[in-house]
Design a protein around this nucleic acid. Sequence first.
DNA 1: CTCCGTGCAAAAGGTTTGCACTGGT
DNA 2: ACCAGTGCAAACCTTTTGCACGGAG
Lengths: 147, 147
Amino acid sequence: MQDGMVAARLREFEELCRQKGLPVTMQRRVILEAVLQRDDHPTADQIYEAVQEHIPQLSRTTIYRVLDAFVDLGIIRRLHQTGAARFDGKINRHHHVVCVHCGKIVDLEDRNLDQLSPPKGKLQGFKIDDYSVQFSGTCPDCQKRQE
Amino acid sequence: MQDGMVAARLREFEELCRQKGLPVTMQRRVILEAVLQRDDHPTADQIYEAVQEHIPQLSRTTIYRVLDAFVDLGIIRRLHQTGAARFDGKINRHHHVVCVHCGKIVDLEDRNLDQLSPPKGKLQGFKIDDYSVQFSGTCPDCQKRQE
DNA sequence: CTCCGTGCAAAAGGTTTGCACTGGT
DNA sequence: ACCAGTGCAAACCTTTTGCACGGAG
């Protein structure tokens, strides 16, 4: 992400914090900057490494807590649920609806979605076996819990 | 999955084993059956629970090893990489190409894929926020490693 | 008979939690 | 000054590994 964009996102973050009355700490600024500056989908540990040069005493615990907070604020995304791996006995092409709160996954069969054509020449040399569409949102149970 | 289908998949599995000279053990049959019988994308631990009533002394270690073997054989799928969570600073709609071997994730921007319409009435009461398409395959590095 | 598959126990990640302290507002 | 944010250490959960045994081919 280019510097100008990173700066814009940082300002956006600070404004969001002011709106919600959340303190803007050095740690949060530095961690957010680290996530925005890379486009390789870093792990918590990679962020930890990256941040060391700015705040050497920053702890992993804080990384985890701050990243969580950012995901809740909606300013970054978690690419997949942490916790146990899940397995699927269905091996035909199909799609999923995932609850971002509890991790529940339900199958979605849809003919239209089965026939997407992979964009030519954008796949960076990957040999593609298959694809699947993931809809993300909130399941009925978690909707109730939020009310 | 209906019983007939489960039985068919089991036969398919046994034939595959015979082709490859792999022993068909009781453990593998029972674990495969357990995965095929449910459509809720179980974790290794849930399979462990389910299998207890058939072979009480079956260990978690075996569950993990057998599930791995099944994924390699291509008769079941792992729904997401195990290991560390990954974070993404990009929050606009975009898509991913994922290497099933090393877990590398690269971004894919494609206008056509940005305009899919969620199928009406199939979303089981989920409130959908967004979606993304995931292409899965083998990255250039892992292709080299395989040669 | 020979191996591969299995079980147990221990180690290895990765993440979360309890508690005391620090630092933003 | 108050309360949320932070750091440390320990707990926790999931997965992997080393080694010895037993059953499948």
